[in-house]
Design a protein around this nucleic acid. Structure first.
Length: 207
DNA sequence: CTCTTGATCTTCT
DNA sequence: GAAGATCAAGAGC
């Protein structure tokens, strides 16, 4: 049994299997809010995601397969990791049947496991900033190109079901210049660990 | 608090 | 040659 994989932490639910992802990306994306993602035992609760589908121009798969996006065109339940702006890594979970080329970008986590390791990797102390963005959370969890194509239900990756259905809010996706009006960003309502607040929650923001 | 900019890899024009 | 599913630091208010 690999170290850090099976844990006795009572907060963790059942491991999600690949079949969880074998349905519409628009069902999977909000259902990921509240699940727990760990890589080698380090990670936290997913609080923000975005859905991408090959039929809209903001998706990497829109113009067909390339060396970079090949994993997106494969079966559901695998990690698609790409280089962002030449510097960062971003991780997606591939959904739907092979060839659909749809995926969910993981944008923010609430840190719960291995916080000391995350602080070392991020050179930061503030918990709210450890995983509050797609490039931040990959650095905190140690995700790189080496994780591209890995299964989501086998070490070093583990994804745990949520215990209760959370309140999920939606909005437009962040940082795009194409398909900017599609409301395919989902977040945990009221979370302090988002990359940016949702419009519905502006009144809830504090100092 | 907001706005601007540099860093620097992959893909596309 | 330009743009991009980003981030952090610095300037200005």
């Amino acid at each position: 049994m690999p170290p850090n994989y099976v844990r006795t932490d009572q907060k963790l639910g059942k491991l999600l299997r690949k079949t969880f992802f074998n349905r519409s990306v628009h069902e999977v994306a909000p259902d990921l809010i509240g699940t727990t993602l760990l890589v080698d035992g380090v990670g936290g609760i997913i609080v923000e995601v975005e859905a991408y589908h090959h039929t809209e121009p903001a998706a990497h798969s829109y113009r067909g397969p390339t060396a970079r996006n090949a994993v997106m065109f494969g079966p559901a339940g695998f990690a698609y990791v790409y280089r962002s702006y030449g510097i960062h890594w971003c991780v997606n979970f591939v959904c739907e049947k092979a060839g659909s080329a749809s995926a969910v970008l993981i944008r923010a986590l609430e840190p719960t496991h291995g916080i000391a390791a995350m602080r070392r990797r991020r050179h930061l102390h503030d918990e709210r900033s450890l995983c509050s963005g797609p490039g931040k959370l990959t650095e905190a969890l140690g995700i790189t190109h080496a994780h591209n194509g890995l299964a989501l239900d086998a070490p070093p990756i583990a994804l745990y079901a949520r215990s209760a259905k959370p309140e999920v809010v939606a909005g437009v996706r962040i940082g795009l210049t194409k398909a900017v009006d599609l409301p395919w960003r989902y977040g945990l309502k009221g979370s302090k660990f988002l990359s940016k607040p949702f419009a519905e929650e502006i009144v809830a923001q504090r100092s």
